[in-house]
Design a protein around this nucleic acid. Structure first.
Length: 279
DNA sequence: ATTGAGCGT
């Protein structure tokens, strides 16, 4: 569903430097931007990959039969984000013009990115708004996560939203209940990670946090959610953290009008109003 | 200003 009959100018037009059609193949087969292997065998760790040519013409990267990197599923019990062996980061809040090469170029300066991939709709070929970045090592991935998360994306007004890739199976076991709180009055610079760490400093059962952003502009809406594994910590946080500062502003903390995951627990489901009317 | 919805071949 799209507001097709409106003549709104695109709020964030792709900058002229990045015109996806220039290098995007017509057929959405090749979805992964694979790094060409370095000329000389990597003698030591920390070698540099060559940055792809700036204005790659209509030439598309040729897939090379490379040995698949070994990645095994993480333990289901391990909910910790930094499980060793994981070299992939999840990246969200992508705009449609942000393709593999763009994402790759964002991290190429570190010389530690191995590949970048944007998830696309199989039929339409359009970006689903997220992707994956594989790095040369877990440490490299962690370094880039810490360095870039929340910072400005090149040629964009928005900031990087990065997280550990969950690697498909394993992490979707929902027999562990979650207790979520609402956090409002967030400053504009607060990322998921900052919000999470702000609460984790006092509550060890914090599972994660998410700052809600506008899908179109990528800008924060000034509120978010923090998930707890322990109900008493959730309750404590609601009173103790209310008014506490995160970054430059005091937070407003309250109960989340949540759609809880199916788990047999209390279903406090309320009517969900479609937020489509910003008048 | 204020109650989302993100994990692939």
């Amino acid at each position: 569903m799209q507001p097709s009959n409106s003549m709104i100018p695109s709020p964030m037009a792709p900058p002229p430097q990045y015109r996806p059609q220039q290098w995007m193949p017509q057929q959405p087969q090749q979805t992964q931007y694979q790094v060409p292997p370095p000329q000389q065998p990597a003698a030591t760790a920390g070698y540099y990959y060559q940055q792809p040519p700036q204005a790659a013409p209509t030439q598309q990267p040729q897939p090379q039969p490379q040995p698949q990197p070994q990645q095994y599923g993480v333990s289901p019990a391990a909910q910790a984000p930094a499980d060793d062996g994981t070299r992939s980061l999840w990246i969200g809040d992508l705009q449609y013009w942000m393709d593999e090469q763009y994402i790759y170029s964002c991290f190429a300066l570190t010389g530690e990115v191995a590949s970048a991939k944007v998830i696309r709709n199989k039929q339409t070929g359009q970006s689903e708004g997220y992707g994956f970045i594989e790095f040369v090592s877990h440490a490299a991935a962690e370094r880039n996560l810490m360095t870039y998360n929340g910072t400005q994306m090149p040629n964009s007004e928005q900031t990087f939203r990065l997280n550990w890739a969950s690697m498909g199976a394993g992490e979707k076991h929902d027999d562990t209940p979650e207790y979520t709180i609402f956090v409002g009055d967030l400053a504009a610079d607060i990322t998921d990670y900052m919000l999470q760490e702000t609460f984790r400093a006092s509550y060890s059962s914090v599972k994660g946090a998410k700052v809600v952003t506008d899908k179109i502009t990528g800008r924060t809406k000034g509120y978010g959610f923090v998930r707890f594994g322990d109900e008493s910590e959730q309750l404590h946080a609601m009173t103790e953290m209310n008014g506490r500062y995160c970054s430059t502003r005091p937070m407003r903390v309250g109960p989340a009008a949540n759609k809880q995951k199916v788990g047999g627990q209390t279903k406090g489901c309320q009517e969900t109003y479609h937020i489509g009317a910003w008048s």
